[in-house]
Design a protein around this nucleic acid. Structure first.
Lengths: 150, 150
DNA sequence: TATATTATTGAATAATATTCAATTATAAAC
DNA sequence: GTTTATAATTGAATATTATTCAATAATATA
């Protein structure tokens, strides 16, 4: 048996989806060519960035979620983007925001389990320039971006 | 001129997209019927929940992001899900997590601007059972869920 | 080893997106 | 207000794609 599913999931996370124009046309009672035209415009303007599949994370072994509140070392205050962009490169990092308040960065991480998360923080995220990390572990996701009706 | 675009965006946020099986088949060098079969299985198992468009939030007037760290009143400790689920219903709420650490709930909000956000918190989110809200405003999103290569 | 179940695949069909040209609506210039 | 240019809407034709179905292969179960 071939193992196509992980490859499929990988592609569907990147994109490899497309709008269902005919279905929308029926729903909105508009000609499909009109919707086609408007969707293409949204794409060209950059309003639509991609079309992707939304997964049930538990079912694809990415059920663990944590938020990191990060304090940078004083010498990094001037350029939080540098460290932020570094961290952004990791596939386990779902979001990185430069924020106001008591911290400089807020990072959302998604991994298979707590053990994987621990290794990630220990080996990769902790680094020079980061002064302190406050971890907030998610016990239950009541709502998650892009996933309605959970 | 008809105003189809907001309606389009509404539908594309819900779903109304579909995988591009032929494109994936080319990429993976597999017969499209094999992928069809495997995708259908993923859908039936609930691993894939939906197919949606990913937007550039600034371009669709949803550029403001804030995180709320919420402390519940002691009498609500036993059932954080109740308030969490209430809050989840709002369309401006992107995620709600029950968390460990110094807070009970972590909520991510996305609105047009700070003014809209303020009204939302003032009128809707603040309520009996919530003791204290610590707001973390996002100054810049370096990475955002599902949107790669920003 | 035999049997049942699950997965893979090609050919035929149905559905869909896309292209294109014509028409209509809107905005800009005079 | 009229003319001109630009942008948006649409139907018909075409190209592409998803889907169905039946046959085969692979795997698991008895």
């Amino acid at each position: 048996m071939k193992d196509t599913r992980p490859k499929l999931i990988g592609l569907l996370k990147e994109g490899y989806c497309t709008p269902q124009i005919a279905r929308m046309a029926k729903k909105l009672q508009e000609p499909s060519t009109t919707l086609q035209y408007n969707i293409k415009k949204l794409e060209e303007e950059g309003a639509i960035k991609a079309y992707k599949a939304i997964f049930s994370y538990k079912k694809i072994d990415e059920g663990f979620v944590a938020f990191l509140l990060i304090n940078l070392a004083p010498e990094e205050y001037g350029d939080p983007e540098k460290i932020g962009k570094e961290i952004s490169k990791l596939k386990e990092i779902e979001s990185v925001d430069i924020v106001t308040g008591g911290w400089e960065l807020l990072v959302k991480v998604r991994t298979k389990d707590q053990e994987t998360y621990y290794q990630l923080v220990k080996n990769v995220i902790s680094r020079k320039g980061i002064n302190k990390i406050t971890t907030i572990t998610s016990l239950m996701q009541l709502k998650s971006e892009f996933v309605a009706g959970q």
